[in-house]
């Protein structure tokens, strides 16, 4: 992990290293995408910084990735057009992704790819091919959502680190062992778990544990909700004709989460109106408890929000970076977290 560096110094170094690329022009020496055969030993694996967990930031665009790195993220995760859950939150095309990887490498940082929809059987080969190419470019890890595809990627791309997405719904020690068996490198757990639960998982499982300490906890668990397609499936078909499977976001129904949980519902008790209300949801941000999670052995601190602006990513990552560095310096319990940005709210997600 890099030492804490004033942001202006990082920016200066970035400019020196990348020159005009900070403006997102194509990186010299790289042409258009070329197909390559499936490889068998690619990718650089998750390399958690020694002594402290990796800080993994969301990036919905290149500017957000830059800001995240500047603010102290060790890695960013990004979506690739057509293959990531919640595409409306921001996805990269291949060229942007390659530029992001180059940017990360120039800074000694890493990029993970959220390919966390469930591909149709006839799409699997194409996605495998694409992952192979991306691994050749230096992609660190891929985030996947389906146990079957996860195992297939492990077998065909053994050098690529794989993270079992939060959409896999893992919550407990045996879940971690299950995905460890399948060959996942890491598993993502929701931020409402307690440090004791993480410690118990780490005591039995060798798989790396990512925890999404900064996220919106919606009423229904991530990956276990198909309320939107119960209400709106046909509309999704009209909006995205034949582009992807219909249904919930994890099927790749791009944008088909209609946020029905964020609309008021009338609760009827035996047919009598009892209340008008939203499904409960809350913003989780456990930066004040970060030390307890790090003590518990968390390997990766993950921040939700590929839809966040670059400025917001920078602020949030900066706060978590400071907290993690304070822990690393032994300042347990002495770090007073600043207030979260007011814009980061459940409604604004």
């Amino acid at each position: 992990m890099l030492a804490v560096t004033p942001r202006r110094d990082i920016t200066h170094r970035l400019r020196e290293q990348l020159g005009a690329n900070l403006g997102m022009e194509p990186i010299p020496g790289y042409g258009p995408l070329q197909a390559s055969p499936l490889s068998t030993a690619k990718g650089c694996g998750i390399d958690v910084p020694k002594g402290c967990a990796m800080l993994l930031a969301p990036a919905g665009n290149l500017e957000a990735a830059k800001q995240a790195f500047q603010a102290g993220a060790d890695a960013v995760y990004v979506g690739l057009k057509g293959w990531s859950r919640g595409g409306a939150r921001g996805e990269f095309d291949c060229e942007q992704l390659r530029q992001c990887i180059e940017l990360a490498h120039a800074l000694g940082k890493k990029v993970q790819l959220a390919a966390n929809i469930i591909p149709k059987p006839q799409e699997r080969q194409r996605l495998l091919q694409q992952l192979s190419e991306l691994a050749d470019w230096g992609l660190q890890a891929v985030i996947l959502n389906d146990a079957g595809f996860l195992r297939e990627v492990r077998r065909k791309l053994p050098g690529l680190a794989i993270t079992a997405s939060i959409g896999c719904g893992a919550l407990n020690t045996d879940d971690a062992l299950f995905y460890q068996d399948l060959g996942a490198t890491a598993i993502v757990l929701p931020g409402y778990l307690e440090p004791e639960e993480i410690a118990a998982i780490k005591a039995k499982a060798s798989i790396q544990v990512e925890i999404m300490l900064h996220m919106v906890q919606e009423f229904i668990q991530l990956g276990k909700c198909w309320m939107p397609s119960y209400v709106h499936f046909a509309a999704a078909d009209r909006i995205f004709p034949a582009q992807r499977l219909g249904g919930s976001v994890k099927r790749g129904g791009v944008g088909t989460c209609f946020r029905i949980c964020q609309q008021p519902w009338t609760l009827l008790n035996d047919g009598v109106e009892a209340d008008q209300r939203l499904f409960p949801s809350r913003q989780i941000s456990r930066v004040a408890e970060l030390a307890a999670f790090l003590d518990a052995g968390v390997d990766v601190i993950k921040i939700q929000g590929r839809s966040l602006s670059a400025e917001m990513v920078s602020v949030i990552i900066g706060i978590y970076r400071s907290a993690a560095d304070a822990w690393k310096c032994g300042q347990k319990g002495e770090w007073d977290p600043p207030a979260l940005p007011a814009m980061w709210t459940v409604q604004g997600r």
Binding site: I118, P119, K120, P121, A147, G148, G169, K224, K250
Partner: peptide, 14 residues
């Protein structure tokens, strides 16, 4: 149904 079997590949693993 909550185990999220969506594909033949997933079912094969289980």
């Amino acid at each position: 149904g909550f185990a999220n079997v969506y594909t033949d590949a997933g079912a094969e693993v289980l």
